[in-house]
C-alpha cells in the first residue's frame, strides 16, 4: 500500500470519521508541491515534511518496540490506546472497513465536516472580536449553533459556542445596565445611542431584548 490509496472518494469519506495522523521519517520525496496557491509536502496536502517526521518520532516508540514495518495502519481509541493494526499494504476497502470497525467501537462521534465547521465559526468569532465587529462575532456563533447545535455528538463544540454567546450576553447586559444609569443621570441621548448599539449588535441575545425594552421606556427628549 502506498499513499496513493488515500485520494479515493470512499477512503476520504471514511477518514472523516477519524482523526488521521501521517508518520514518515523520510524526506527523500519531493519536499514541496504546489496545491493552487499553497505549498505543502508532495505526499500530503496540509502538512510540511517536518511535521510527518516529527509525528514519526513522537509515535513510533508508542507502537513499536523494534523495527517498524512499513506501511502499518493503526486504529486507536481517542486516548491513543491501540484498537487494531494492519501491517503491510492493503486495498482501500480494507482500510475503510478497519476505520468503520474502530468507529463502531469508539461510539457515536462527530464528523470532521461538522467539527471543522463549528471550530471555524469559533475562529471567525475570535477574528471578528479582534476586528471590533461584535455583530459579526455573534452571527458566526449563531451560525455554528444553528447548524450543529442539535447534533448530540457535537456537544463539546456546541458548549464552547454557547459559552461564548453567554459571554457576549453578559457583556451586553452590563452595557444596558450602564445605559440605565446614564438615563437616571439625565444623559438620555447618550443612553439611547448605547442601547441602540446593543439592540443592533447583540441581536438574538437576551441583552438585545433588554436594550429594546429600555429604548421603549426612554423619556421623551426635546
Amino acid at each position: 500500500m502506498d499513499v496513493s490509496v488515500y485520494p479515493n472518494k470512499d477512503m476520504i469519506a471514511a477518514s472523516k470519521t477519524c482523526v488521521n495522523i501521517f508518520c514518515n521519517d523520510e524526506t527523500e520525496h519531493e519536499p514541496k508541491k504546489k496545491y493552487g496557491n499553497e505549498e505543502w509536502c508532495s505526499a500530503n496536502y496540509g502538512q510540511v515534511c517536518d511535521e510527518h517526521v516529527k509525528n514519526h518520532r513522537e509515535t513510533s516508540s508508542l507502537f513499536f518496540k523494534d523495527s517498524i514495518p512499513n506501511p502499518t495502519s493503526i486504529l486507536c481509541m481517542p486516548d491513543g490506546t491501540e484498537i487494531k493494526r494492519k501491517v503491510g499494504g492493503m486495498a482501500g476497502k480494507e482500510l475503510v472497513d478497519l476505520m468503520k470497525e474502530a468507529t463502531a467501537k469508539v461510539g457515536p462521534g462527530l464528523g470532521q465536516d461538522e467539527y471543522l465547521f463549528g471550530k471555524g465559526r469559533l475562529k471567525a468569532c475570535e477574528d471578528a472580536v479582534k476586528a471590533g465587529k461584535t455583530k459579526d462575532a455573534i452571527e458566526a456563533l449563531n451560525a455554528g449553533n444553528k447548524t450543529i447545535g442539535k447534533n448530540p455528538a457535537a456537544k463539546t463544540v456546541v458548549d464552547q459556542i454557547k459559552a461564548k454567546l453567554e459571554e457576549f450576553n453578559k457583556a451586553g447586559m452590563e452595557i444596558v445596565e450602564k445605559a440605565k444609569e446614564d438615563v437616571a443621570a439625565g444623559k438620555v441621548e447618550e443612553a439611547k445611542k448605547t442601547l441602540l448599539e446593543v439592540s443592533r449588535n447583540y441581536k438574538t441575545l437576551e441583552c438585545a431584548k433588554a436594550a429594546d425594552k429600555e429604548i421603549a421606556a426612554l423619556p421623551k427628549t426635546k
Binding site: C18, T72, P78
Partner: peptide
C-alpha cells in the same frame, strides 16, 4: 501532531488512524 490528534479525537469522540509510511 500526536497531541493535536488526541485532543481532537477526544473532543469528537472518534478513533485515531495512525499511518506509518
Amino acid at each position: 501532531s500526536w497531541e493535536e490528534a488526541k485532543a481532537e479525537a477526544k473532543e469528537r469522540n472518534v478513533p485515531i488512524h495512525v499511518a506509518f509510511h
